[in-house]
Design a protein around this nucleic acid. Structure first.
Lengths: 105, 105
DNA sequence: CATTAATTTAATGTTAATATTAAATTGGCC
DNA sequence: GGCCAATTTAATATTAACATTAAATTAATG
């Protein structure tokens, strides 16, 4: 499975998106990531694992604390994936708008 | 729920990603979308609905045929979402790399 | 206008993802 | 070394997403 696939899978879950967004401004320890979230600590750990495998975040062990931070690699993978749609989708859109009356196979 | 949230939910599923990718180059009727996919026609319909609600595709009724095509709106929503991470994540990364030895709150 | 084709809607089953609780690990600290 | 704090791993329960089959809709076609 590719990085972009893993990334889309990962951000498909709302709780994981919240975690991801929490890390946007600054790296955080798990204690602080879990704050405000309505799920248990182990659940947070599992989500972090999924995000990490998708290269959307990376870990930075600091003694007994695990500091997580955004990893650009996963974000880049998604951007590239979406960019492949950008131009061709635009072209397809124009084409479709013009040939509305033509038969569609 | 925002468009970007709906879009991430939608593309979190591998079958929906396949459908989305099939439409990348050209609009297609459901018959052709379903070709090659390992799921039933009704399942495809359900997936199309989710993608449509996420503004990732749009419909174009042609008699009894429903032609689907990429909709940039949802893609744009995801792009914007990811872009918000882009710069700040880079900054956070640099910051973290530099202050590895500093205590983390 | 009955029939066929294309697709969706509805009802429901099944599986996989997400959640929980309990136990294990790891490292700092007195 | 014993203890506490932070986090993860393991085992398992629960929920929700995805699937299916059957019926309904809609429009073209003979």
């Amino acid at each position: 499975m590719s990085n972009s696939e893993r990334a889309f899978n990962a951000l498909g879950d709302p709780t994981r998106r919240m975690i991801f967004e929490k890390l946007r401004d600054r790296p955080l320890a798990v204690v602080h990531i879990a704050e405000g979230l309505q799920v248990s600590r182990p659940a947070v750990s599992q989500h972090l694992k999924v995000l990490r495998e998708a290269k959307l975040i990376s870990i930075n062990q600091q003694g007994t604390k695990n500091i997580y931070q955004i990893n650009q690699e996963g974000i880049l993978a998604m951007r590239n994936y979406l960019d492949k749609f950008w131009d061709t989708a635009l072209a397809a859109f124009k084409l479709a708008a013009e040939q509305t009356e033509k038969e569609n196979e």
